[in-house]
Design a protein around this nucleic acid. Structure first.
Length: 120
DNA sequence: GTCTTGACGTTTA
DNA sequence: CTAAACGCCAAGA
């Protein structure tokens, strides 16, 4: 019985890292795929974050609508139940969205590295 | 094993 | 603004 499933651990570890960051995004704030990838370690590419989010779609407590691309564009809106759901969810949290883009994105941006300084 | 696709990012034209 | 290319890493065919 020397069989092991180490692969599963790595698999979950990858998703878990992304989830932990996304979960901690404050309401009314947004972050980018690249910022998360950089926080986890430059070894990961921003694409992997988006890919993890696709899997996170099954999880109810993952505010995927708070994750946008570096331009503040709701690149993942088409992956929600309705194409306007992502935009709507942001609006109700106080984030102004216009033409699929977050207004004052620089001000709304929340960097995961910032949470590092305050939390252990 | 190879090839394509992808909720990205940056650069160049 | 669009379009193309490169880098990045994993999944699916």
């Amino acid at each position: 019985m020397a069989s092991i499933h180490k692969l599963s651990e790595q698999h979950q570890g990858f998703f878990a890292l992304v989830y932990q960051v996304v979960e901690q995004i404050p309401q009314g704030r947004v972050t980018t795929y690249g910022a998360i990838a950089r926080y986890l370690g430059t070894g990961l590419s921003a694409r992997m974050v988006g890919w993890a989010m696709n899997a996170a779609h099954s999880l109810p407590h993952i505010p995927a609508h708070r994750v946008v691309n570096r331009l503040g564009i709701l690149s993942g809106k088409h992956h929600f139940g309705a194409p306007d759901e992502m935009e709507l969810r942001l609006q109700v949290e106080g984030v102004v969205v216009k033409h699929d883009r977050v207004l004052e994105f620089d001000s709304r941006f929340w960097d995961p590295a910032l949470h590092l300084s305050l939390d252990s």
